[in-house]
Simulated scan of single mutants.
Amino acid sequence: MKIPIDPAAFAPLIAWLFKLWVRTIRFEPEGCTEFAELNKKGQPLVVALWHGEIFPVTAFGHTLTTHLVTFVSQSKDGEVIARMLERIGHTTVRGSSTRGGVRALLKAKRIMEQENRMAVFTIDGPKGPRHKAKDGVIFLAQRAGAKIVPIRAFPERRKVFEKSWDRFVLPMPFTRCPVRIGEPMAVTTEKLTEEVMARETARLEARMHELKPEQ
């Protein structure tokens, strides 16, 4: 008799391993390092990152705060990720640009307002194209009256999964990891027409690409 095993049951173990892994990494942040303090003082913020850098950026964020609301897809893999993130203190909302997106954005906005949590957004996820920002982050920032904080992480010793669409980056334990944090970006108050949205996402992409390993 085959006994099915729910992968989400491993979330507590994954969360424990993640926290242990994070403790070994030497993060070296540069730029707007006080962004978490700005949020504590009442400034709504949305943290923007590339999907491929989700592990090192989330790891760095864990050293600062867990007072976050994070978007997770409604897939089976997403269920495992959601439970793991909740174990380390995040609030999660389920949805993506391909499924349940608007509902998730509005739920995240309510959580931001009610609990003063920063939102975390993989702006080119869940399926790419790689390093091409999608509309959701601009929509959320405008509706929540939030600024967008672009963040990138560049672990020196890493495994890059070249065959994945996002070229997922896994930092090796005990590595040095420069982190680059851009100045909070205010989004337009204009109506988000197709033209305005394209302009704002391009502006955010440019901010992301300005962040380099050594500055």
Rank of each mutant, 00 (worst) to 15 (best):
P4N: 12
I5G: 04
D6K: 07
P7F: 14
A8C: 07
A8Q: 02
A8F: 03
A9H: 02
P12E: 14
A15Q: 06
W16E: 05
L20M: 14
W21M: 10
V22T: 15
V22I: 14
V22A: 04
R23V: 10
T24F: 09
I25R: 01
I25E: 04
F27D: 05
E28H: 08
E28V: 13
P29K: 01
E30H: 11
G31L: 06
G31S: 13
T33N: 05
F35P: 05
F35D: 07
A36L: 00
L38G: 04
K40L: 14
K40V: 10
K40T: 14
K41S: 02
G42H: 00
G42I: 02
P44M: 07
P44C: 12
V47E: 01
L49S: 10
W50C: 09
L64W: 04
T65Y: 03
T66F: 03
H67F: 03
V69W: 00
V69E: 05
T70Y: 00
F71P: 08
V72C: 07
S73F: 11
Q74V: 11
K76M: 10
D77Q: 13
G78A: 12
E86I: 10
E86T: 14
R87M: 11
I88M: 13
I88K: 00
H90M: 08
H90A: 15
T91L: 12
T91E: 12
T92D: 12
G95R: 01
G95Y: 04
S96C: 11
S96A: 13
S97Y: 01
T98V: 13
R99K: 11
V102R: 01
V102K: 02
A104H: 06
L105N: 04
L106M: 14
K107C: 03
A108L: 02
K109F: 01
Q114D: 15
E115G: 04
M118C: 11
V120C: 00
D124G: 09
K127D: 14
K127A: 10
K127Q: 14
P129L: 02
R130I: 14
H131W: 04
D135H: 07
D135M: 04
D135V: 09
V137F: 06
I138D: 09
I138T: 09
R143V: 12
I148Y: 08
I148G: 06
V149Y: 01
I151K: 00
I151H: 01
R152G: 07
R152L: 08
R152W: 03
P155R: 01
V160W: 02
V160D: 08
F161V: 14
E162D: 15
W165V: 12
W165H: 10
D166I: 00
R167P: 07
F168V: 03
L170K: 03
L170N: 02
M172Y: 13
M172H: 12
M172L: 15
F174P: 06
T175W: 05
C177I: 06
P178A: 13
R180W: 07
I181V: 15
P184M: 10
P184N: 12
P184G: 10
M185G: 05
V187F: 07
T188W: 07
K191D: 14
L192T: 15
T193Q: 09
E194G: 12
M197E: 03
M197A: 09
M197N: 05
E200R: 02
T201E: 01
L204M: 05
L211K: 00
L211V: 06
E214L: 13
